[in-house]
Computed example of a mutant assay.
Amino acid sequence: MPTFQAFYVTENADKTFSNQIIERSTDDLPAGEVLIRVKYSSLNYKDALSSIGNRGVTRNFPHTPGIDAAGIIEESSSDEFSVGEQVVVTGFDLGMNTAGGFGQYIRVPARWVVKLPRGLRLKESMIFGTAGLTAALCIDKLLQNELTSDKGKVIVTGATGGVGTMTVMILAKLGFHVVGVTGKPEGEVFLLNLGAKEVISREAVNDQSGKPMLKGIYAGCVDTVGGNMLATILKSMQYNGVVSICGLVQSPELPTSVFPFILRGVSMFGIDSSECDLEWRKKMWKNLAKKWKPKGIQNIIKIVTLKGLSKEIKKILKGGQVGRVVVRL
């Protein structure tokens, strides 16, 4: 069986974690109906956590992270897929407790695999990756609940991160007035270039007044942050405002009341791209390949090899990543 290179995280005797690039055999990979030769992956915050031994992401080490992978089928025992087909795998257990996309091969269950839709190249699919899929699911939920561009502003928190970047670009493509929130000095120019109409600081959405309600400003929101920022935005939603939430980088706590929901009819939806319905997942990938595909997505990426991953992992853990990091295998 083929040997291949993989980014390998190991636990040391002193309970610290280190990584190296090693040679592995496809015989070492877990069971699954589909063997995929990985061409591209991408770096997500969850990958960085796995790389430093976070047990909430990965229980057992040594391990190869990478929750995203795009490549070509090498072997298949599934009637759904044929050798040579281009495919995408994101989420499920990939890169968490199943050897992930930071290796040149993965073996996974067929139900995790989506055929690459027309209009999308393998590299482009990893510019989107889990971040783009999550953004698409968040936006689709807003649209399902009758949010339209004429109803008002849509605010996006964590706007320079992976999900935030993709959300800003897609919403701008769809004609929405996007307000991006960032704490990065370089974030304003970056977000305006993506299509945001306004950029505000984190402090502007960190209400400490204790008031149960604030002036209604936003018709929609995609929140990747949680905590008091989300609570502030909920108090600042217009009547019948719609909020999609998908992250908790500030806090999993939500210090709010029921007032936004019962006095202004605000709706809030949690989004999980890891285990979401397969048909919804396929629909979103088709949208990303066609009508939702922003122009200029090639301009927001940095491409690295396995050798460059360690540096980028340190950067994303410090909150310094802007845009998307694509890993070329």
Results as ranks from 00 to 15, higher is better:
Pro2Phe: 11
Tyr8Arg: 12
Val9Trp: 06
Glu11Ile: 14
Asp14Tyr: 10
Phe17Tyr: 15
Asn19His: 15
Asn19Trp: 09
Ile21Glu: 05
Glu23Tyr: 01
Arg24Gly: 01
Ala31Cys: 00
Gly32Cys: 10
Ser42Asp: 04
Lys46Cys: 09
Lys46Ile: 10
Lys46Tyr: 09
Lys46Trp: 08
Ile52Thr: 14
Asn60Leu: 10
Pro62Ser: 14
Ala70Cys: 07
Ser76Cys: 08
Ser78Trp: 12
Phe92Ile: 08
Asp93Tyr: 04
Leu94Glu: 04
Gly101Gln: 08
Gln104Asp: 11
Gln104Thr: 03
Ala110His: 09
Arg111Asp: 15
Arg111Met: 09
Val113Ile: 12
Val113Glu: 06
Leu116Phe: 07
Gly119Trp: 10
Leu120Val: 05
Arg121Cys: 02
Ser125Ala: 15
Phe128Met: 07
Phe128Val: 02
Gly132Asp: 05
Asn145Phe: 04
Asn145Arg: 14
Ser149Leu: 10
Gly152Pro: 01
Val154Met: 11
Val154Tyr: 07
Met166Pro: 01
Lys173Asp: 09
His177Ala: 12
Val178Ile: 10
Thr182Ala: 04
Thr182Leu: 05
Thr182Tyr: 07
Lys184Tyr: 07
Pro185Lys: 00
Leu191Phe: 10
Leu191Asp: 01
Leu192Lys: 13
Gly195Asn: 05
Ile200Val: 15
Ile200Asn: 11
Arg202Asn: 12
Ala204Pro: 02
Asn206Arg: 14
Pro212Thr: 14
Leu214Gln: 08
Leu214Pro: 06
Tyr218Arg: 02
Ala219Glu: 06
Cys221Ala: 15
Leu230Ala: 10
Ala231His: 07
Lys235Thr: 06
Met237Tyr: 05
Tyr239Gln: 15
Tyr239Trp: 14
Val249Leu: 13
Val249Asn: 10
Ser251Pro: 13
Leu254Trp: 11
Leu254Gln: 00
Leu263Pro: 04
Ser267Val: 12
Met268Thr: 14
Phe269Ala: 05
Gly270Thr: 07
Gly270Leu: 04
Asp277Cys: 08
Arg281Thr: 06
Arg281Asp: 03
Trp285Glu: 02
Lys286Asn: 14
Lys290Asp: 14
Lys291Met: 11
Pro294Arg: 00
Pro294Trp: 00
Ile297Gln: 01
Gln298Met: 03
Ile303Thr: 15
Val304Lys: 14
Lys318Trp: 02
Gln321Thr: 13
Gly323Ile: 00
Arg324Cys: 05
Val325Asp: 01
